[in-house]
Design a protein around this nucleic acid. Structure first.
Lengths: 354, 354
DNA sequence: TTGTACGCGTTATCAT
DNA sequence: ATGATAACGCGTACAA
């Protein structure tokens, strides 16, 4: 029995307009070019063992008919998909956006496609990641929140690699990539100590984040000897949201009495620092860095703008993205089977705020 | 012949580790629950005509086995996908990022999933959009560049709706959604005229963009009567890139001689205006708005920050996203068959730069 | 070099 | 209310 019979007999008439709905399949191309579906498939996937004559004929027919491989169908029988899940939460955090930008590019260049999942509600993170499983993603990158440990087993079972970027790594079987928060905290402390200021502070969002907490703790450890000798003081500072407004509003409060307020402040992330700077300069009339020295973390684009010129700990979004995709590909190929924890080096970018 | 035979006989032994690779299918659930695949399918797609007893049993078995519907396979059969293509070019333009943020959220809430395509090279836009066809996307949103007209026919043929947002609408069969660039240009002109300044300018990226050009042309038209009477002058201003650095560098040049340079400037978009402001204030020592009045367009988050307080034409990213998804859904449902051109109203947000 | 036959996991259809 | 069967579009052993 020939395969042609698979194609439902359409009768003979040409119903006008029907073709508008009809999707061109490899069978259509095969029939039109007078070959089998196998041949069409082989031509378009670059199989060597095909005659130049038929290859050209098939190519031409495919173009003429407007045929495009159905990747959905293809991935059904190869049981591989080139979709990669990207878990994020909003696009309001500037550094995360810069990272996603580079990540999307890197993913595409590797022949994969990013499927974005936005988890506004952290509680829904688990179910959201399960959704990704329904799409047979080849891998997942988590850039926000921390997935509940019980999802790990589902991804492990399916051999779907998960990479956590700048997150706490409590997920079983997942790789973790972080920038060097420890070294960053130390560098911030060292730099601020050099300013000669004596009232230190660390500004972070209420409750803290994984990265922020590490940065703050290391910062304080580094100050410890001087704190012990009584040279300097330290005050933990808190803002309501981890963004510009959070830094702005918090600064209005804790800088209200500049004589006693901290004057050497390390911020958990740049965006908070920018809010702090604006509140200090424009609302409270303080001079930077004479009255207050400020150090941020991330080195987002806005940090180098003329209005801010923020001194900050720089982590490279590009390198972070490259590391992420490299690791993902190793896992997908099956090269690497054991979890890994990678650290991206950071460096201090000195501008005008400290 | 019973369906069970579909499952390949695995022999009897339990090879350790093999299950790690095996994906749980509806057949597995069916066998385990003692029902047919059809029943499993119906249970999990919420079919009413199923007994409560079996429904519960199937649900439980599915959970226990860790079964997740394979949406890829489902969409093969239903010939519908819930993927929506998002065409963008980088995540460096702040307003576009804000729009994408809201768009991704709106798409998810409608039960669809965003598949992101980044087209850095405008020349590759056509082929990139064709890639989306391979994934059987239900619709496409274009937020960057202008697709070559010939792609229109491919999407039309497949009944895949395309929505162009803030783009030139030359694509056959596509819907177009724009903010009210015309009204925006007028409002900017009116506001700057009220300042009493006399030397007007419009700052845009070299070559211009669709939106920018419309804004600028309307701006000039509105100034026309006063230009004719000789009260005021107008100078077209150009920057190399449509971002902060572009505005910054351009301003350094054309503001070099402040006595004759334009002192009432409308910028094609906020980010350019921010660069201009910083160059004027910090590099050239000019006062805003006393020496120079500036109006932007978009009302991005940074525009309301204390450092800038930019007066600007506001378009709502949220509303734009809602309009986009609404239109997309109408098209996918097949309600709307004829192209449409929608306009999002804008309003002036007065802060401190004009 | 090319064709045949089968299966990927699901849902729609028809039958019971 | 439930089961059996036929597609969906593709890649690929196997055969020729």
């Amino acid at each position: 029995m020939t395969e042609g019979k698979h194609t439902p007999a359409k009768g003979d008439g040409a119903e006008p307009g029907r073709d508008l709905q009809h999707i061109v399949t490899s069978a259509d191309v095969a029939r039109e070019a007078g070959v089998s579906r196998s041949t069409v498939s082989r031509c378009l996937s670059g199989d060597r063992r095909i005659s130049e004559a038929t290859r050209l004929r098939v190519q031409e027919t495919a173009n003429r008919l407007g045929y495009h491989v159905n990747k959905i169908a293809r991935s059904m029988n190869t049981r591989k998909s080139d979709l990669i899940g990207l878990v994020t939460s909003g696009l309001s955090d500037p550094f995360r956006v810069e990272f996603l930008d580079k990540l999307i590019l890197a993913i595409q260049q590797s022949g994969y496609r990013p499927l974005v999942i936005d988890v506004s509600d952290p509680a829904q993170m688990g179910t959201s990641m399960m959704h990704l499983l329904q799409y047979q993603v080849a891998g997942v990158v988590v850039t926000s929140g921390s997935p509940p440990p019980e999802v790990g087993v589902h991804f492990l079972k399916r051999n779907v690699p998960v990479v956590l970027v700048n997150r706490a790594g409590r997920l079983e079987g997942a790789d973790v990539i972080n920038c060097d928060n420890v070294r960053g905290g130390e560098m911030a402390a060292d730099l601020l100590l050099e300013t000669g200021k004596t009232r230190f502070g660390f500004l972070n969002v209420k409750g803290g984040t994984f990265s922020g907490n590490v940065r703050g703790e290391t910062f304080v450890s580094r100050l410890a000897p001087r704190l012990a000798s009584g040279d300097i003081s330290f005050t933990p500072l808190v803002c309501d949201s981890a963004d510009y407004d959070g830094g702005f509003n918090a600064a209005l409060k804790f800088l209200a009495t500049p004589e006693t307020a901290p004057n050497a402040i390390f911020c958990a992330k740049d965006h908070i620092a920018l809010g702090l700077l604006d509140a200090a300069r424009f609302e409270l009339g303080l001079r930077i860095p004479e009255d207050i020295a400020v150090v941020g973390f991330d080195d987002i684009a806005a940090a180098r703008q003329g209005a801010y010129q923020l001194t900050t700990v720089c982590q490279s979004a590009t390198k972070l993205a490259e590391m992420t995709v490299d690791r993902l590909r190793q896992r997908i190929r099956g090269d690497a089977l054991t979890d890994q924890r990678l650290i991206l080096p950071v460096e201090m970018t000195c501008r005008r705020t400290a």
